[in-house]
Design a protein around this nucleic acid. Structure first.
Length: 301
DNA sequence: AGGCAATATCAGC
DNA sequence: GCTGATATTGCCT
C-alpha cells in the first residue's frame, strides 16, 4: 500500500517566498509543497503527522487544518490519493474515457474540459514564425500552486506557468523560449482576471467559457486538444493519447508534446501518467504534479 | 540526425 | 511478485 510514485524530483522541494495576496491558498502552497515533498522523500518510513509537522515547524493541528483547507483532504488521505495504487485505479476506469468527452467538443464549440474552454489554434505558419508579430501580455499572480505567470493575447489565454524559488525571470524565460519572436509586454492588469477564473472551480460556468489560444505545431495542438478531454480528477496514459490522435505508436512523441504544453493546469497535462501508473514527468516539477492531482482528488464529489 | 515526460523485458531480490 | 536497470522503440523537430 502506500507507495508513492518513486520518480520524485527533489529540486522542487525548496521554499517559495511569500506572496502577499488575497487568494489565500497561494500562501498555503509554500507549506503544502514542503509537506508533500517531505512525505514523498520519506514515504518508506511512513512519517507520522507529528514528524511532518516537526519538519515544517508547525503544530500537528495547524498542519492538519492547513492541509485540509488547501487540499480538501487530510494529509493521510492525500497521500493515498497520490499513490501508485490510486493512479492505477484511475487508469483501470479509463476505458473509453477520452472518446466520450471529446466528441462533444468536436461537434459544438462549447463544452470541452470541466473548465469549459473554447480553444482556437494558431496554425502551422506560427510554428515557423515562433510567435513573430504576436504581442503577448504577461503578469504574475498568486495561485493555489504557487505564484503563476500568465501569458495572454487579446484573443485569450496563451500561457500559464509557475514561478519557483521566486525566480520570475526564469519563469518568463521559459515562456519566451516557446515563442522567441513574440513581443512580451508586462501588463498585470491584462492578465489579472485569469487566475480566479481558472483556479476556482465554482466559477467554471458553461455560459462563460474561458478562451484559450493554442500556439504550437500541428501535432502538438492535436495532443493538447486531446488533453482537454480528460475529465477532472481522472487520468490517462501517453499511449492512450497516442491512440486517440491516430498514431498508436507515438507514445514517446506524445510525451514530448505534452511536456511542451504552454497552458499548465488549463490544458491538463498533469492528468497524463505512465502506463504503470508512475507519474513520470512534469515540466513544473513532479511535486507540483502530485499537488495538482491531489488537489483535484480533494475536490471530487 | 538527434533526442525523448515511453514501454517491454529481464535479472536479482 | 516486485523493483530497478537496460534494450528497443517510433516518431517528432
Amino acid at each position: 500500500m502506500l507507495e508513492i510514485a518513486r520518480t520524485l524530483d527533489p529540486q522542487t522541494s525548496r521554499a517559495l517566498e511569500d506572496a502577499p495576496t488575497p487568494m489565500s491558498a497561494c500562501a498555503d502552497y509554500d507549506v503544502v509543497r514542503r509537506i508533500i515533498a517531505f512525505i514523498s522523500e520519506n514515504w518508506r518510513d511512513q512519517p507520522s503527522l507529528e514528524s511532518i509537522a516537526d519538519h515544517v515547524g508547525l503544530s500537528t493541528s495547524h498542519v492538519h487544518h492547513l492541509f485540509r483547507r488547501w487540499a480538501g483532504l487530510s494529509p493521510k488521505a492525500f497521500l493515498q490519493a497520490v499513490t501508485l495504487d490510486h493512479a492505477k485505479r484511475l487508469l483501470d476506469a479509463e476505458a473509453s474515457l477520452l472518446d466520450a468527452t471529446l466528441e462533444l467538443g468536436l461537434s459544438g464549440p462549447a463544452r470541452l474540459h470541466d473548465l469549459f474552454v473554447t480553444h482556437e489554434a494558431m496554425t502551422p505558419g506560427d510554428y515557423k514564425a515562433k510567435g513573430a508579430g504576436l504581442v503577448l501580455s504577461y503578469g504574475y499572480h498568486p495561485s493555489p500552486f504557487g505564484e503563476a505567470i500568465v501569458v495572454a493575447t487579446p484573443r485569450g489565454l496563451a500561457g500559464l506557468g509557475f514561478v519557483d524559488d521566486a525566480d520570475r525571470d526564469g519563469a518568463l524565460a521559459d515562456m519566451r523560449r516557446r515563442w522567441p519572436n513574440a513581443d512580451f509586454v508586462r501588463d498585470d492588469a491584462a492578465t489579472s482576471s485569469y487566475p480566479a477564473r481558472v483556479f476556482e472551480p465554482e466559477r467554471w460556468r458553461p455560459d462563460q467559457p474561458l478562451d484559450i489560444v493554442l500556439i504550437g505545431t500541428d501535432f502538438e495542438v492535436r495532443v493538447w486538444r486531446t488533453l482537454l478531454g480528460i475529465p477532472f480528477g481522472r487520468a490517462t496514459t501517453y499511449s492512450a493519447v497516442a491512440e486517440k490522435i491516430g498514431s498508436p505508436k507515438a507514445a514517446r512523441a506524445v510525451g514530448a508534446a505534452v511536456g511542451r504544453n504552454p497552458i499548465s493546469f488549463v490544458v491538463p497535462c498533469h492528468r497524463v501518467v505512465g502506463r504503470s501508473g508512475a507519474l513520470t514527468g512534469y515540466h513544473w516539477g513532479l511535486t507540483r504534479k502530485q499537488a495538482i492531482l491531489g488537489w483535484e482528488a480533494g475536490r471530487m464529489a
